[in-house]
Amino acid sequence: MEALFLYGFFQRAFLTGIFIAIACGLLGIFLILRRDAMIGHGLAHVAFAGVALGLFLNVMPLAVALFMAVVASWIIMKLKVKAGLHGDTAIAIFSSVGFALGILLATLSQSFNVDLFSYLFGEILAIEPSEVVFSIVLAFVVVLLIVVNYHKLMYMTFDRESAKASGIKVDRLDGLLTLLTAVTVVLGMKVVGILLVSALVVIPAAAGLQVASSFKQAIVLSTCISITSVVLGLVLAFLLDLPASGSIVLLSFLAFGILFVFRRARG
């Protein structure tokens, strides 16, 4: 098995995967507790339109997807706060419109091919060196911004009004969190694909929340489960010739299942 790590493509996938897993594990806790778990799903569909546009224009698809996801996340946030749309309506609209736009662009550019499928289903084992740098730098920035704003984000998520009364600029933090979500979704897309990226953000966090009795525990557990799922998923995918995306998501679901049963048994 050590031989695995001698392969350049595996090293790249492994390193990128771990960084993205940390970003997803950290962010997921905040999204679930803010009842925003579905935003990842919605933004992934918008990112699909971005990938299709990138392939159509022959520009780096990840960068176009990132731009579109950031714009969409900002509009979703504004619609939620200002336009008085109910619950997840804005996310549902953007999710469908994004996907529709993606289908249209992909058909027009005749790019319904291997390239597009690698984004739909994820293909981290085939990640390009340029994408490795792009992904690691962005994932590092996401992690750093969450760590630096950890206390403010926790306070705002737990008790928004008191946080605001204590002088925390909650609107600014909302914007930051939305931006970080867009970036993380686009990064996660490379690991598990557009169709499964929200699982990578939500499932490890949901698993950690089953047994955590403190916020710190929840964050640490979520991140550990996320990293373990990605690492084991990659190894299994390589050894058993399975798709990495499916293996990673199913492993995180296994962790969720075990912790869910443990919590129920404990009462």
């Binding site: 507790l33 760590v147 630096v148 950890y150 206390h151 403010k152 926790m154 306070y155 737990f158 008790d159 009004e161 008191s162 946080a163 204590s166 002088g167 925390i168 929340l209 955590a212 009795s213 403190s214 916020f215 710190k216 525990q217 929840a218």
Partner: peptide, 25 residues
Amino acid sequence: HIDSLFPVSVKEVVAMGIQSSRRFP
């Protein structure tokens, strides 16, 4: 205000008050 299922310890809640202006956990 409070979601009773929120995973936060008493100490963490009290710490929110003094730590929210700090940069590192």
